[in-house]
């Protein structure tokens, strides 16, 4: 069923304005009892308030402060983050990749927008953009420069193209001057972009 209908896709029967199109489809599905609008509210609330980059930052801060956790995470991230409750839709199979002075990791999905939802939430608009999807694999250093990240020559870049159901979490390098900081304070330094690999963890202020 590769469906090349050209211009006769069924969606063209809905209103063309996107906001009206979504509203119309929601109304049709609700009237038939196929969708409960309160369930949509609950989904939106989950991603606005519960499932987001704070989860990933907690994982990173644990890896920075607990050598046993770090080793387990690098060995089997799926099982390790699951124990913390960071499991679910779009995060069933997770691999953690660690940045070092010799290697910087960064993540893209050139074919769609695969992203570790239970750890980072809903992907930002730029991650889903055509430009990022096209360029991250071919010219990661120019892409990083657009994010204000400049890597030395001795650091190799490894770009992970999420073509399957594996989801990648970058463990950024722990910033200098953070000795003695507790886990919560460290987690506050871990930005979303640093866990995608388009940023570095913040320096302590």
């Amino acid at each position: 069923m590769p469906h090349d209908h050209h211009d006769d896709h069924p969606h063209s029967l809905l209103p063309s304005d996107p906001a009206l199109r979504v509203k119309a489809l929601e109304t049709i599905l609700t009237r038939k009892g196929l969708v409960d609008p309160a369930a949509l509210d609950a989904i939106i609330d989950a991603y606005e308030n519960r499932i987001g980059p704070k989860n990933g930052a907690d994982v990173v801060a644990r890896a920075w402060t607990d050598e046993g956790f770090r080793a387990a995470l690098l060995e089997d991230a799926s099982a390790t983050v699951r124990e913390l409750g960071y499991y679910g839709r779009q995060g069933e199979h997770v691999v953690a990749v660690e940045n070092t002075p010799a290697q910087h990791n960064m993540v893209v999905c050139t074919l769609c927008s695969c992203y570790p939802w239970p750890l980072l939430g809903i992907p930002p608009a730029w991650y889903k953009s055509d430009a990022y999807r096209a360029r991250a694999v071919r010219e990661p250093r120019r892409v990083l420069a657009e994010f204000g990240v400049f890597l030395p020559d001795e650091t190799a870049v490894r770009v992970w193209d999420s073509t399957a159901e594996m989801r990648y979490l970058v463990i950024p390098m722990r910033p200098e001057g953070t000795e003695g900081m507790d886990r919560a304070a460290l987690a506050a330094l871990v930005t979303r972009n640093s866990m995608i690999g388009t940023g570095l963890a913040r320096a302590p202020s």
Binding site: L29, V35, D41, P124, A125, S129, Y132
Partner: peptide, 23 residues
């Protein structure tokens, strides 16, 4: 160019984006 927004970029840029995702 990619034009990244900051870390505090809103999850949705229009209310219908959230609705489309949830639907």
């Amino acid at each position: 160019a990619i034009r990244p927004e900051g870390e505090d970029e809103p999850l949705w840029h229009e209310p219908w984006h959230a609705r489309a995702m949830a639907l």
